[in-house]
Design a protein around this nucleic acid. Structure first.
Lengths: 137, 137
DNA sequence: TCTTGACTTAGACATTGTCCAATGTAGGAT
DNA sequence: ATCCTACATTGGACAATGTCTAAGTCAAGA
């Protein structure tokens, strides 16, 4: 995602300090931040940044396909910058840790035609749930 | 789910009018209501029922394994009474309609051991997304 | 029928997200 | 280099969903 800013500028994005900071936060460790966590991390570098701007910017990044929105519980959405590699998620039922995983096989092929009800299916999301090694102990 | 009330009584549930009405609402058409929709439907039969009781009862039914909690977007959770038949969900990206579907194959087997990071995996949730026939038109 | 511990209620509160009017500014035009 | 202006940001009000608590109510066993 290092050339993200270039790609965005190419699409007519106005490059502001706020947007740069949000993009840099997501570009860091491969984590799954909530919007509030992104805001907190961004505010360390740019203290006046507002929540509204973080929400706006995250929404734009999602629309542009640069970031994926993940909802593993009913709580806050999380933002996954690993949008250019198809992957699924493994979630600890106890501590909530999220890991990216890569199932084998064609997930779409598992749904028979008569189970598609005429839908034009474009995406499959899989969440594996269980206990991580720490919580299982 | 017709013998639900019997099963619950067997587990020491105190059977109140409120709980009966919530269970009856879920037992109706095979829909995926939000908590507020359950509350509205329940209030038609029992006008004084409170939101808190509906939330409590739904939470209990989920804990008891009688109902499944589904989060397909970041909005309200939905409650699926079809808990005794393993199934997954097909969601229309435009209108939000949800259908229960039954993929073939062993979904768990698709995740290689080295992609499990030591987790003890106990469940797999799959959401297929696409446009339903009406919205695709 | 009495008693009691579990259940329900109303409403305050918490979390997450959205919207708006006022203000600021990036980047093209001059 | 400076100016313009459309687009971006801000702060705070508002909305949607869910949780908690103290006080009152009731199902079901004795």
């Amino acid at each position: 995602m290092s050339d993200l800013l270039e790609r965005l500028r190419g699409r007519g994005w106005r490059l502001t300090a706020q947007r740069r900071v949000v993009a840099e936060v997501l570009d860091g460790d491969h984590v799954h931040y909530t919007a509030d966590e992104v805001h907190a991390a961004a505010a360390e570098r740019l203290p006046e940044i507002s929540r509204a701007t973080v929400y706006n910017t995250l929404g734009e990044l999602v629309s542009l396909g640069e970031v994926i929105e993940v909802t593993t519980d009913g709580r806050a959405k999380r933002y996954d910058p690993n949008a250019h590699h198809a992957h699924q998620h493994l979630v600890c039922a106890k501590c909530g840790t999220i890991r990216d995983v890569h199932p084998s096989g064609d997930l779409l092929a598992d749904l028979p035609t008569q189970e598609r009800y005429g839908f034009a299916i474009s995406a499959v999301e899989v969440t594996y749930r269980g206990l991580c090694p720490d919580c299982a102990a």
